[in-house]
Design a protein around this nucleic acid. Structure first.
Lengths: 329, 329
DNA sequence: AATAGATGTGTAACCGGTTACACATTAGGT
DNA sequence: ACCTAATGTGTAACCGGTTACACATCTATT
């Protein structure tokens, strides 16, 4: 492996000059520059990022902390982030937190020791004080942390309202909600949106809300109970797409036809929705865009640009599948 | 941020002693050790990984290069790898190559400059010479590169045979194959396995093999053509699970009942299989295990342990869903 | 012709660790 | 009591870059 020193010797200049050529800083005579460039090419010299990082206290690396990359929402976010980063010569470190506060903190610690330039995080447990104290640029995705911390998400309350409104518009008369976990802001907001749309309805009962955990099996179980106890429910707003799959499974087990007997709408718009049968109607987040905006915002933060907007709330769209009736039917 | 120097001053010892305490190397008097440890705690000192990396020429980081993390096979592999790595204090860098040789090479270059300790790669384009030349420990996953390069995969030929045998055992009389891309070894092997099982059959025609590209839409299109031209095909072995979804979509569009009119079997065993309706019968790879074995093998390589086996071929299992008839039906 | 500013280059300190080596002290063996 | 080996600690070089600063030369201005 050749070093800047070898290049300097070979080109008969000092390491400072080589460094100037590499970084296009300071003055370098055109002749000298060409000579150095020639030697660099000859030796196939590639500067050592670690040495540079040590001095500059930055690593051209950012970390993404997600609960679990296996959850189909996150790979698309990760892909978007990585696309933006790699186009700017940054590198992405991937961390799975399992929504565990200890793991999140451990990752933060390690990242700080590695001079990671910034972190994009999906968390429900990290506090603004902790983040502040670490002093690493950070952007939250999907789940809101604090007004002080930039966040990229959709308006979950609005999205949930749209979901319920849509079910209503297709003729559903009794709409239940299998919500996501209690401590997760996005799940909370979707619940709030649902509640806002239904609480003044004469048919509404608090029993229409059940708590799932963003996972299929448990949702199937919960839905089966719900439908057994309330057979006249004809619409379910699931906390996310995976849960919608769970709801559909339960409905099928109970012999209910979808969407004739029961309409199901999800949330997220992961590509899975188009693979199931029936295809799932869902409130689709612009997932790729969320990732790319988050990455862009983090780079702005890192590179000291003013960030015009702290909280990006992107628009949801409704993706119509066959898990809901067609309007007016 | 406190440094080793500050700790040394505070504890009235030299940096060498602090370093010895940190790394449990050399001789350190117990009293001294306690004193240093106390100061480290007081100052909340965390050693700087970058400085250590520079000297040690290793970064406790490994890179995973996959075609696209958005393909549902890879997040599970990534998760497994990350689990193993984080338990050993290694960090994972994620790269998306899009199966593009230039991108793969660029990542390799960058990783080398960052002193990445090793690479796990899913590639069809990298040559052993190139890899050799970079001199970075490497493990291939899913796709075989060269006998010299450790590889973790399943026996795709055997798996494909099992798939076809299973279709036969459930009564299929004419079995087609929508295969994956030509240049990908795993797709090639699955095709070979299929061929081996069918070429001696009287009903077999070369027209029963169509080429897809591991993607749903194109597979649907291809399947539609296949079934229109050969209406009596009653079984399809899809190149992977995503393609199986495409096959099922096509069958439904043509009004064929699954599995009564057409049996479909996939390959991979991604969690998607359990979410569709009907659930997809598939030749399941032990995906998580593939990832963890790959990670473990790479660490063995990095840490200089002898690797007993260069090519790990893990066992596939058959996951029975409702996309195939029950045996003997 | 004198001088300020631009241009060009090298020396050496610095980033924050690790470790070879030197040196001292203590313990153990005969 | 003497010698060797084990124990304990500090100094300084090193990893491979970046950059402040010093210094020299060249150009332009008055």
């Amino acid at each position: 492996m050749s070093t800047i020193k070898k290049v300097a010797e070979e080109a008969k200049v000092s390491v400072a000059t080589v460094s100037r050529v590499l970084n296009s800083t300071g003055y370098v005579n055109e002749e000298t520059r060409k000579k150095v460039l020639k030697v660099i090419k000859e030796l196939d010299y590639k500067p050592n990022s670690v040495a540079r990082s040590l001095f500059k206290k930055q690593s051209m690396t950012i970390a993404l902390i997600v609960p679990n990359i296996t959850n189909p929402f996150f790979p698309e976010v990760a892909r978007a982030i990585e696309d933006v980063l790699s186009s700017k010569d940054y590198t992405l470190i991937l961390c799975n937190s399992d929504d565990n506060s200890e793991k999140e903190k451990k990752y933060f610690e390690v990242m700080k020791q590695k001079y990671v330039d910034g972190v994009i995080v999906v968390t429900s447990t990290l506090t603004p004080q902790y983040i502040e104290e670490k002093g690493i640029p950070i952007v939250a995705v999907d789940r809101f942390i604090d007004p002080a911390i930039p966040c990229v998400s959709v308006n979950n309350i609005e999205g949930a309202k749209r979901a319920v409104q849509y079910l209503k518009s297709t003729g559903c008369k009794k709409i239940a909600h299998i919500r996501g976990p209690k401590n997760i802001t996005s799940a909370e907001d979707r619940y709030l949106g649902y509640l806002n749309e239904v609480e003044s309805e004469s048919w509404f009962e608090t029993d229409y809300v059940r708590c799932g955990n963003f996972n299929i099996e448990q949702t199937t179980e919960e839905t089966r109970k719900l439908l057994n106890e309330n057979p006249d429910i004809d619409g379910i707003f699931a906390g996310n797409d995976l849960m919608a799959v769970g709801v559909i499974k339960a409905a099928m087990q109970l012999g209910k036809k979808i969407p004739e007997d029961l309409s199901v709408i999800g949330f997220d718009g992961i590509s899975l929705c188009k693979m199931t049968n029936p295809e799932i109607t869902t409130i689709a987040q612009p997932i790729y865009e969320i990732g790319s905006v988050a990455a862009q915002t983090l780079l702005d933060l890192i590179e000291g640009r003013v960030i015009e907007k702290k909280h990006h709330q992107l628009e949801v769209t409704i993706n119509k599948g066959q898990s809901t009736k067609t309007r007016g039917e």
